[in-house]
């Protein structure tokens, strides 16, 4: 009797285990195709040799080369766009950091009326429809002479990065145990050494995460840049957009898509590995 029961339960866990493996295999396979195939196709398209066009019904390009890459770097605005993208991004991150720090400190460590409202207001740039903000902010910018200016572009990108920076920093400020701050105070720490020895070191991982989120947001920002920056300033996304529009050239677009996404993927995965914690969901999980 007991023995039978024992066998039944082991059989049960065995089938469960098999079911689990089957399910895991299914999800992984689906995701490999779902995520992998589009990326693989783009990589292939970017390597198509110009003299051997890849067309129906070939399943694989005849010859691969870096000719398209050379072409894009030589004959398009990509280099200038890269320069713009990668100089706007760090500046807007820096600005967002200084703007976010006091606000995140207050939101994370102080108790005051209307805190929930402020936490929601912070998300406005993410919640508000991007094109509406872009179009009519450009009217505001125009009247202050900021449209088509580099500084205006930095301000616009700062606006889009701020929600991430504030939310992530707020979460890290909240996570500091009050006991540790009390202990420092109790042992004679002044305000300056409290900031230097307790606050800054303890929010450092969140700070890093917030900076990377703001940075990648700036790199991929399209709406505001398109309206406020072009044609004076082109960034990588606006170049890609132009290649996806009337003059759709698949091979060039493939190259630019890769230029745009590879650094982002690497950076965000690196941050995840280093931080071992989900800052994005922690900060955006609640409205």
């Amino acid at each position: 009797m007991r023995r039978d029961e024992f066998t039944i339960t082991t059989l049960g866990t065995q089938t469960r285990k098999n079911l689990y493996i089957l399910l895991a295999a299914f999800f992984i396979l689906v995701q490999l195709v779902w995520v992998g195939l589009p990326i693989l196709m783009t990589v292939l398209w970017s390597l198509v040799h110009p003299d051997y066009p890849w067309s129906y019904p070939q399943m694989f390009p005849e010859k691969l080369s870096f000719a398209q890459w050379r072409f894009v770097f030589r004959y398009t605005n990509i280099v200038r766009a890269l320069k713009t993208s990668y100089s706007v991004a760090p500046l807007s991150v820096l600005l967002a950091f200084f703007l976010a720090l006091p606000t995140a400190y207050a939101l994370g460590r102080k108790k005051f009326a209307g805190k929930k409202l402020f936490m929601t207001l912070v998300l406005l740039p993410i919640i508000m429809p991007g094109m509406v903000v872009a179009l009519f902010l450009s009217r505001v910018f125009t009247s202050f002479g900021l449209a088509q200016s580099f500084f205006g572009l930095v301000l616009a990108h700062t606006l889009m990065g701020l929600p991430y920076m504030i939310r992530v920093l707020t979460t890290s400020f909240e996570a500091i145990p009050q006991d540790v701050i009390d202990a420092a105070e109790n042992l004679g720490a002044t305000s300056f050494s409290k900031i230097k020895d307790i606050f800054l070191p303890m929010v450092r991982p969140g700070l890093l995460a917030g900076m990377v989120f703001a940075f990648t947001t700036s790199i991929e920002e399209f709406n505001l840049t398109f309206i406020i920056g072009t044609p004076t300033f082109e960034t990588v996304p606006t170049i890609l957009y132009s290649f996806l529009g009337y003059n759709f050239i698949r091979t060039n677009a493939s190259v630019i898509a890769l230029i745009m996404m590879v650094p982002n993927i690497l950076m965000l995965f690196a941050v995840e590995r280093i931080l071992k914690s989900d800052y994005l969901s922690a900060s955006l999980g609640k409205l």
Partner: peptide, 18 residues
């Protein structure tokens, strides 16, 4: 509330004006 001005103020100013 003064601490909120740089962050929330910046956002409200730009989004609000648009």
């Amino acid at each position: 509330y003064l601490f909120l001005i740089p962050g929330v103020g910046f956002i409200v100013l730009f989004i609000g004006s648009s």
